[in-house]
Every structure is written in C-alpha cells, then in structure tokens.
Amino acid sequence: MTAKLSLRGVRKRFGDLEVCKGIDLDVGEGEMVCLIGASGSGKSTLLRCMNLLEPIDDGTIWLDGTDISEPGLDPQPVRQKIGIVFQSFNLFPHMTAAENVMLAPRRVRGLSRDTLRPRVTQLFARFGLEDRMDYYPDQLSGGQQQRVAIIRALAMEPEIMLFDEITSALDPELVGEVLDVLRDLRQQGMTMVLATHEMGFARELADKVCFLDAGRILEQGPPETLFAAPREARTKAFLSRVL
C-alpha cells in the first residue's frame, strides 16, 4: 500500500537557518496525523511545504505516487488538492463569509455564484453558520471565523486538509466548536495533518503522532504508545511540560 502523501528527506532552510532537516513522513488515505513539538520546531513550515506554499530545498514529496516537489512544477493544481487552515484564520476582510468561500471555486473552477450558492449554503449549515453567510469577518467571533476558514478550504473539495494550530488563537470557550468540526471531518474520512497543542485531542483522534524537535521528527507512533511510553528523553521532557 502506498501512502496518500509521502515525504522523504525533506529539507527547508530560511537563509542560514535550516528549519526542516530531512523529514520522512507517510500519511495514509483517511488518516489523521498530528505534529507536536515546541514552538519553533518547524511544524508550520513543514505543513506549508506540504502544499507547496514554501518550495523545499531538497528531498521529495509524493502525492498519490506523483512527485509534486519537482522544482519548477506549477503548484496551483497541487494546492487545490491539499487545503490548509491557518492559526490566524486569514479570511479576506473585504469579503463576506460567503464571498470568501466562493472566491476560489469561482475563479479556479469557473463556477458561477448561482451554481455555488446551494452547495455553499449546505456547507455553512453543516457547520452551524447558515445565518452568518453574509457577515463580514470582523462581525464574526474567532470560532466562527475559523469555521468559515475551514469551509473556505473545504469548498475546493481537497483530498487532504492541513491544519496549523487552528485553535491556539481562540478563547478557550471557542476551542470546542472548532474541534467538533475536526471530529466531523475525521468521521467523513478526510485525510488530515494537524500541527496542534491540543494533546487531549491528538490522543483521542490521531492515528499517528509525530514529535518534531529542531527540524527533525524525533519520534513517531500511535498516540497510545507515544504519549504513554515515549522512547526519547526529549519527547519525555516535552510531554511532561505540556501534559
């Protein structure tokens, strides 16, 4: 069985700073993989490399067995297949929630607003936001904005979703509603990679947890093993700090 998304020896540097120092990672179809690790360990960078927002310096990324990391390759079709949601939502402030969601399907897929509206309404309804479709981002709570950002990514019908600490900018009472969305997606069988500080959540739902330390995956495994019996001293130290 080949993995849906495979990374081999992925390296990424910013100037003199090497942020990914040879990452090997497999994400199977329908799997949920969690990246944990200290601040600055390279979680966000790794996610951004996966959907080609950052070009990698060395190594290979395969999507369904196709090398997508070939330098000079057009990144647009890949990005349509791999959606990402950011910590800071990054909604477009000059568009309503619905316009935010419809922009990419309109421009990339060439669909009209009228064709899209019913489908988009359905998506909003699924995440309990049908009465907020025509609000501007600054009229929405953080939790609502983040759910709109998720809907925006889902509207392109991606095969893989990346989530970069999507709950860490939220007030504690709003975290639950966003995590519920992830549970829902998990049930639908979406392939997902999450950078997260929500250890409880990772433990509950992840198929695999990877501990990143200074640009390397130091240790990975199913959550039961990694959380209960970490092998590496640094993993132990990190977990004892956050758990």
């Binding site: 951004r48 959907n51 927002l53 990144p75 647009q76 079709p77 990005r79 349509q80 959606g83 990402i84 950011f86 800071s88 990054n90 909604l91 477009f92 922009l103 990419a104 421009r107 990339v108 950002a149 925006r152 990514a153 392109m156």
Partner: peptide, 21 residues
C-alpha cells in the same frame, strides 16, 4: 503576506490573488 498565502493555498493564480485579494 498571510493574505497572499491564504489565497495561494486555495489554488488562485497570482493574477487573481492581486486582483481579488
């Protein structure tokens, strides 16, 4: 830059990112 990133991650072309975002 994060606005451009968000738009690019949705598969929008550079032109559309400039024009619409």
């Amino acid at each position: 830059q994060s606005q451009r990133s968000a738009a690019a991650s949705l598969g929008l072309s550079d032109r559309d990112i400039m024009r619409f975002v």
